[in-house]
Amino acid sequence: MLSILIPVYNYNAFPLVLELYKQCLECNLEYEIICQDDASNAFLAENNEINALENCHFSSNETNLGRGKNINKMAKKANYDWLLILDCDTFPQNSDFIKKYYFKIQKNDSSIVFGGILYEQKKPEKDQLLRWDYGHKRESLSVKKRKRKPNSSALTSNLLLKKELFSQYPFDENITKYGYEDLCFMITLEANKIKAAHIENPTFHLNLETSALFLDKTKTALENLAYILNSKKADLKDSKIITVYSLLKKLKLTRFTAYLFNLFEDKISAQLISNKPSLLLFDLYKLGHFCKLQSE
């Protein structure tokens, strides 16, 4: 029936697994929960407790594979026809989380379903505001808004899909660093006329990195985006960064944009890690750094 896949990295996934385990028992469905740590070194004792729960398994990779390849590996282990991919730092908003997905499985009217993502309403510490603000305004979208662009607004942090579909279109294993593996995956599905369905069944994203770390991870993610663009792995027509970059390229302004970014990067970074980060500046930061990568 249902294989729940949870990629783990430096996080205590036991509370999440315990909640999912209880909900699966209440639904009386065939299930397994597979957690796989990607060669991290924290919370291993806590996560090993997962193995004491019925049909729940925790193991660790000997070497770091990257999120996509780690999930691919878990999917191959999965015994059931449906997969539910959840990030380890998420937690269901409601106690009927599994029940809602179980209903979609029984209905069998969609091969892939995204439940949504939420962020706590209470503001975090000042050094975490950029990630929190970005999550609230760019990721935490209503079902109505998500349905306007069903594939580009779906994230693999809370995604139900058929194993047969995932076996046919696994994650690109060349993307081993953080970022944009979701986008590449969903665009590939769209290119093959597979559209994600959207329901109201969100998880909270709990683990907020500092603004400084989020900026560093954003740079890494942009390297992935450059790889996807340059290798022509997917049609990036729905990416705002690529749309603006393509316009700048036509106008022969990418090197000038990269030059301006080098001049003002420190000042923009200082604003973004402040207690009032601007998402407009964050967009300009990403565009500038992307132009820099493409100009090197």
Rank of each mutant, 00 (worst) to 15 (best):
R255I: 00
D96W: 07
F43M: 09
E139G: 00
C35E: 12
S152W: 02
E62M: 04
S152Y: 09
L29E: 12
D182R: 08
F14H: 10
L229I: 06
Q121T: 13
K123S: 14
L16V: 01
V244H: 05
K107Q: 15
Y245N: 05
S211Y: 09
T176S: 13
C291M: 11
N61S: 06
N174C: 05
Y21G: 07
Y285V: 10
K144Q: 15
D235W: 00
K252Q: 15
F264I: 07
S152A: 10
D37I: 00
N94A: 14
K69G: 02
D283T: 01
C291I: 09
S167N: 14
Y227A: 10
G68R: 11
G68L: 09
E120M: 10
L287H: 08
L251H: 00
T218F: 11
K76N: 08
L189P: 11
D283P: 00
K149L: 15
Q23D: 08
Y134N: 13
D238T: 07
I6Q: 04
E173H: 07
I34D: 06
E296K: 14
Q23L: 11
E139Q: 12
S142A: 08
A78W: 02
A75H: 05
E19H: 08
C35F: 10
A78T: 03
T176D: 04
K217A: 09
L213K: 11
D87P: 04
A13W: 07
C35R: 02
T90S: 10
K137Y: 13
S95Y: 08
L260A: 08
K233T: 10
F204V: 06
T90Q: 02
A13L: 04
E164H: 05
S295H: 07
I50Q: 15
F171N: 05
E190A: 14
D172Y: 12
K163F: 05
N47F: 11
E30P: 00
C35K: 04
A52M: 14
Q271W: 05
